[in-house]
Design a protein around this nucleic acid. Structure first.
Lengths: 206, 206, 206, 206
DNA sequence: GATGAATGAGTGTTCATTCAT
DNA sequence: CATGAATGAACACTCATTCAT
């Protein structure tokens, strides 16, 4: 299941949505298969008919949602873009919009990123690696190095930029946790992204 | 217990060490009180005599170890130091040495930092806040802003510096996870810290 | 199905072979219908289309394989033979050869002989009885009693002979359990059969 | 638990009796821990507090009951006795009486002897081996070989005698399975034992 | 203070059987 | 004929917490 995106039955969709939500809210360990089947309105048996274990469910879901997420990013991203800040701004924007539409998806992915449960940690890492290899890093490997000031270690500068926006995203997540989706002030956040962008440009660029 | 640092009996020390270790290795949820009493060589009853619940044990431990950690940091830190990079370098160094001596402590604290279990999340946040208020932020609030180039938003620059070293620390942790304490190449890591420092100084400082 | 030996389709053969193997390896209870359909490469539905329950599958299989086994024995046995030891030696030999060719069949039958699962125990007993009545005991009922020494209770002597070779067979089975079919030293086993035969003849025969 | 026969609390006794009964009636696999705790009138938790798994419960029980059984046999057996038939008669008699008093014990032990469940099979074999080594075979290793007729392979003769009474016991068990303890005709069975004894003596002894 | 026996709801998972397609 | 999705009760086992001793 999931392998070839043939999620076309109503029941499959319900499982995916339910599992995404329950895992997003509870993390791997605390999420109970009982809660998932209840949320999905299905029987215990059918869950284990589709996925042979909770672990497999989680990992399949992770792979499916990562793929889907990457796809969405790519289909809206200008792959010719070589300015790192433009790339990050665009990705942030897309993430935002996806968060409004599919908050569970984004929450699931964010949580999975730091998941510590030993049953799935290695599996997540493997999927992450294969994804990153095949596609993600590409975004950053194509960066236009000539824009950076002389004497700057571009690779490390990119790392700093990445960590900055990762840190910012985490900070927002914590803030947002208690709000409803509607209450998030998108304009304010974008403004903050801009000021970090300005600061980093001023410091790293020619 | 713990409130006034009167950890003077041998049994208390054993509980602390055991709980630190078990929580460090498993996180809040997966850590079982059974594992803790077994590791400590004490009875179930006495654990719940000292701490009325697992939650209280965790939170007391967190507070105690945070305090202890902050104290160690402070007693070795030059409080007059106003250069943020010097502060960070020194803190990194102290953390390093503490990790060699008390790896469980550092692992516990790192893990607690990202702990998601709802039973303790708010409690952690509260303790963190009180600690930060009373002491930690002080380190960063005293920073010498005059060293930064004109037109740079110093507060945001400090955030970037913080996120950079946080990101770097996380990266190291992932790398280190599979190694034994002995195999860590301290010199190499310090060299990397230095090059990030150089890069950021060159970019942000006058 | 099976009643009239019309096992002529390829699919039926696959069910038989798969079920024989899975029951032989796991016994009635632990054998799962899932494992059987997987091994046979068929769907769940078709299994329960042919056999209305796991119990009926097992019992039909038992009857079919018992019959088949008895048939094989009979077609190669000299029915005029009235010396019990000759009969047993011949039966042992045939069993041996069948075990080399159809190890699952023999394993299934051996295991069924001691099967304790209440769902099928009575059914097995009934089939065993009808088989024994109609054919098996005949082998032993025709024994030449005049070969036994005076004063010997022939019926009981036959029982002893039977138990001896049954015990020997069980002993071999335990030994063989860990070996591959190829590693079994047929000559050695036949030599042992011979020495038990000699001993019993010397003791019971004139 | 069990290690040093300190089964002195009322609850422990209830667990032992309940587990013995449920395992005796159902074998390892079909016996459910639910049935055991219900029969014993205890909670689920306490069973797994004493025994860390169903497997450990079964094996501890097997060891305990085997030991107990062997002890009972030994304390009533004349160890100087070197006539194999006398030994077997006496053992049969003791078994009988034990069966009247503790039918579950004997049923458990008989069933365990042929238990096929892979979780416990090896464990049973190991315990059996250690028991046999230390004590049981002794009974048969001390047999007076001079009583056997010239030219008889005494070791094989003993095997035959053993298999005969084993087969007889199995036969009785099948017969008895449907009866209540009270309905068993002890005299008749002892008479049959005697006639097998007579036959074997006449055949093997001088 | 100190022990560890005791609880019972909760966990992930299995399974023979049915039935709409 | 044939499929495999669907069921739900049952399984072994875990766990934080309490309490009689």
């Amino acid at each position: 299941m999931f392998e070839s995106l043939n999620i076309d039955t109503e029941k499959e969709t319900r499982i995916i949505n339910a599992a995404t939500k329950v895992f997003a809210e509870n993390g791997y360990q605390r999420a109970s298969t009982n809660a998932i089947v209840k949320e999905a309105g299905i029987s215990k048996g059918i869950l284990f008919h589709y996925f042979k274990s909770k672990k497999e469910l989680y990992l399949s879901l992770y792979e499916y949602l990562s793929d889907m997420f990457a796809e969405k990013i790519y289909e809206r991203l200008d792959l010719e873009e070589r300015d790192i800040f433009e790339i990050i701004r665009k990705v942030s924007l897309i993430k935002f919009e996806m968060f409004s539409t599919y908050p569970d998806l984004i929450n699931f992915l964010n949580r999975a990123f730091h998941e510590e449960a030993p049953e799935v940690k290695d599996g997540i890492e493997k999927i992450k690696a294969s994804l990153t290899d095949s596609s993600f890093i590409k975004l950053f490997s194509n960066i236009d190095a000539t824009k950076f000031r002389e004497g700057i270690d571009v690779e490390k500068a990119i790392q700093i930029i990445y960590w900055t926006f990762e840190g910012f995203a985490n900070q927002q997540q914590v803030r947002v946790r208690t709000m409803s989706v509607a209450d998030i002030d998108k304009e304010e956040i974008l403004a903050e992204i801009n000021s970090y962008t300005e600061l980093l440009k001023k410091s790293f660029y020619k």
